[in-house]
Structures are given as structure tokens and as C-alpha cells.
Amino acid sequence: MNIAHLSDLHFGVHSPDAVSSLIADVVAAAPDLTVVTGDLTMRARTGEFQQARAFLEELPGPVLVVTGNHDLPLDSPLRLFKPYDRYRSYISADLDPVVRVPGLTAVGLQSMPRWRWKDGLVRRSQLSLVSSTFAAAPGGDLRLVALHHPPFGQTLINGPKLLRTGADLLLAGHTHHPDVRTMGSTVVVVAGTSTSRRTRGTPSSWSRITVAEGMVTVIERHFMLDGWRTGRLITVPHAGRPSGPGPGDRRPG
């Protein structure tokens, strides 16, 4: 199973060079599923969503997309009464999408309520959606959850409960720093910012995730002056401690 994980595109403060070359880099990976974990825009403006829509249409499908905190308008009337309308109009009407491909069942969650400005929340109904979807999945399927907020730190209410739904993989963004860790029986992969200039000391990046024979391999692709290059390679069992080279120990050219 081969998954492309992008996040924090931030159209409006994006790098045109990163955008123009990223599509080809993702296409070359031939993913079975492409996941984008939120913050498609910087200020949820119409023009930013239009740019994000055009970008998503070029990604190899199927594509699973969720909202981020920057995808809700900042101004009070829209945020109060129509917080998700622009996202629904330009990206997807389904805020908690389910995507199934052979061997994989994936659930996306809208983790940004209108009354929070930055941190996230997983509602009880969403926990039930994940549990029921995984319960109905074929026995051998890889079970994946995607949302904007990672389940560690203080950024996500009910994060620990989400980790008890039986997910093999949980994909998130928000921090702009790539991260791979095992939490219980779930491998958590946080993607960096793929096209934003707000890199916070880490190059723009996306993560290629391969799952085979009980192992999860994450290859980070970093945007450098000469284009996209392979960065860290991290291998983690489905459950347990990382094995093989640690983060940053192996950099295959």
C-alpha cells in the first residue's frame, strides 16, 4: 500500500515553485491514495480555495481531503453562520469523507469547530463513524484516519479516544514539522507544510508512506533549491518501537 500525504498547502502564502513541481513528484510515487490533511488556504478566501481546487484536481486519485483551522473564515459573520460553506463549494461537500480502495479503508475527519480558533476537536459522532466504518471493513484492510490536528500535545480534544478506534495509521498536519511516532497500536504520521512559505525552520515537504509486511516506511520528500529531494527515511512496525535507522539516520541522496 502506497500513500502520498500532503498537508498545510496554505494557498495565499504559497511558494509557486513548490506548487509547480509538487504534482509531478507525487504522480511519480504512484500512490494508491493521496491524503491532504487540511489548511488548504491561508485565510479561507474564495481565490485561495479556487487555487486549491485547481491543485487538487491535478493530484493522482483517489484523493482524501479534510479541513484545517485556516480553512474557516476569520470574520465573525461567515465564521458564525457559514463556517464551511466555501470549503464545501470549492473542495468537498462531505466534511467527514470515507474512501475505500482495495486493501484500505480510510476515514477523514473535520477537526476544526467554528468556536475554536486553532486547536481541534473530535466529536462523539465522529468517533462512532470511525469505529463503525472500521468494523464494517474487510478483515485484512489497512485502517487509516486523517485529520488536521495531531493526537498528541494539547491540540486535539478527544485525541486519546481517537487512538482507541482501531486505526493502523493516523495522518495529520498543523505543526509544519514532519513527525513519525507510534502511539499504542497506531502509527502517527504528521506531514510538514507542502507548499507554504511558512516553513518554521523545516523545508517544505510531503511524506510518502508505504505499508508492507507489518511495517510502515515513511520517506519525506523535501523541497530544495534544485527541486524535490529525499530527506528522512523512517521505518516503524505497525505496533511497537521503531526499528532500523532512526529519524535522520539515513538519507538516500
Rank of each mutant, 00 (worst) to 15 (best):
F134K: 02
P138S: 10
R198E: 14
S204N: 10
A191I: 06
L162C: 02
L142M: 02
A135T: 05
W117G: 14
R143G: 01
A106S: 10
L147G: 05
P203E: 08
L171D: 08
T186E: 01
L170S: 10
R143M: 02
Q126D: 07
K118V: 11
T165W: 00
V189Q: 05
G108S: 08
M112F: 00
R114V: 09
A146Q: 06
V187R: 06
R124E: 15
F134A: 03
F134D: 07
R143V: 05
D141N: 14
M112A: 10
F134E: 05
R181K: 13
Q110C: 14
F134H: 12
K118H: 13
R200P: 07
W117R: 15
P203N: 08
V189Y: 01
R116M: 13
T175F: 04
G153R: 06
M112Y: 00
G139S: 15
A146M: 00
Q154R: 14
T155W: 10
V189L: 07
P203L: 08
I157Q: 12
S132P: 03
L170N: 04
G173W: 11
G184L: 07
P178Q: 07
L171F: 14
L163T: 07
A136R: 09
L109Y: 03
P113S: 03
R198L: 12
S204H: 03
S196F: 09
Q154A: 09
G201D: 12
G120D: 10
L147Q: 13
T193Y: 03
P178D: 14
R198M: 12
R114Q: 06
H177A: 12
S111W: 01
G139N: 11
L144E: 12
D168K: 05
K161L: 15
T133A: 02
L127Q: 00
W115A: 05
W117D: 14
T199H: 11
L163V: 08
Q154D: 15
A137I: 07
P178Y: 07
T175V: 08
D179G: 01
V180D: 01
T186M: 04
L162N: 00
A146S: 11
D168I: 11
W117S: 12
P113T: 09
S205F: 03
H149Q: 14
S128M: 01
R164V: 05
A135E: 15
H176L: 06
I157T: 13
L129M: 01
L169K: 02
P160I: 11
T182A: 15
G166P: 12
R200G: 03
N158R: 12
P138W: 06
D179M: 11
L109R: 08
S125T: 10
G140C: 09
L127T: 03
G108F: 04
T165H: 06
G120H: 04
L144F: 08
L109Q: 05
S128L: 13
Q154L: 13
W115R: 02
G140R: 15
L171E: 05
V145C: 10
P138M: 00
P178K: 13
T195D: 02
R198I: 02
K118M: 08
L162G: 01
R114S: 09
S125I: 05
K161F: 11
